[in-house]
Amino acid sequence: MRMKKKKKSFPKKPALVLTAAALLLVGSTVGSTRAALTYYSENYSAQMNMQSIGVSLLENDKVVSSRDYVSNNEWKGTSDGTLLTNLLGKDETFTPGKKYNEAISVKNSGTIDTFVRVIITKSWQDEKGNKNTNLSPDLIELNFLTDNGWQVANAQSTRERTVLYYTKALKAGKPTPALSDTLRINPSIASDVTKVPKGKTITYTYKYNGYTFHIDAEVDAVQTHNAKDAIKSAWGVDVNVSDDETTMSLQ
């Protein structure tokens, strides 16, 4: 997922957003990771109480990042969290090809029903944080679950970015089902190697050596009241919403 910088000013959109990013060096133990939260102000303030909105990102049923609106542009919750901190056991080394538990979900930590969207972005970066677009994001395999209310928006997705919508209204205090269950790095990264003869010596250079994989999860929550217009304003997409505003579908 891309790491989003904190904004000094917020556009007026009927949504709140949080992002969390994870970095893991292939072949090493897990290091510290960061999560950043960004929230948008409310364009439908006349139609709802801002103190009612909140959202949390969960990883394996544990809250990674969360913030709820209090009042006067004040929020409560954590603006920085960690991801993948419990991915490995003690002294365990990350192993390409192995599947690790990575259940990502969203909780409505506010007091009104909302619709939620998650954007997962995958990339490879060097030690300076520069993205290498020649390395394949397809090798970062997050297994998505789409038989439990989550829907992948294929028209909005790319090889790097997967956009998912939870098609049911998320009730206050409730979590969604997990949108993923496992994470693994395709073991083919270990076979992508170049042999370089130097006299009597042969050097092997691994294409992915020194790179980290980067997973970015951006979560948006939008009120269910007047949801069709709120979603169009916040996310720029057209959706169908049921008359009772309990379900939505992509057009």
Rank of each mutant, 00 (worst) to 15 (best):
L16T: 08
L18T: 03
L23M: 12
L24H: 04
T29Y: 01
S32Q: 09
N43Q: 13
Y44T: 13
A46V: 12
I53P: 03
L57W: 06
L58V: 02
V63G: 07
V64M: 08
V64S: 14
S65H: 02
Y69L: 09
E74Y: 08
E74W: 05
T82H: 05
T82P: 04
L88H: 09
L88V: 06
K90Q: 10
T93Y: 03
T95L: 07
I104L: 13
S105L: 02
N108V: 06
N108S: 10
N108Y: 00
S109N: 08
T111S: 15
D113P: 04
I120F: 11
T121R: 03
S123E: 13
D126F: 01
E127Y: 14
G129R: 03
N134E: 15
D138F: 00
D138T: 08
L139T: 08
N154S: 13
N154A: 15
Q156H: 12
S157N: 04
V163Q: 06
Y165R: 09
G173Y: 06
T176V: 01
T176W: 03
D181T: 15
P187M: 01
K195E: 15
G199E: 08
K200H: 06
K200T: 06
Y204W: 03
K207S: 08
Y211G: 05
V222N: 02
H225D: 10
K228N: 05
G236W: 03
D238C: 09
M248W: 13
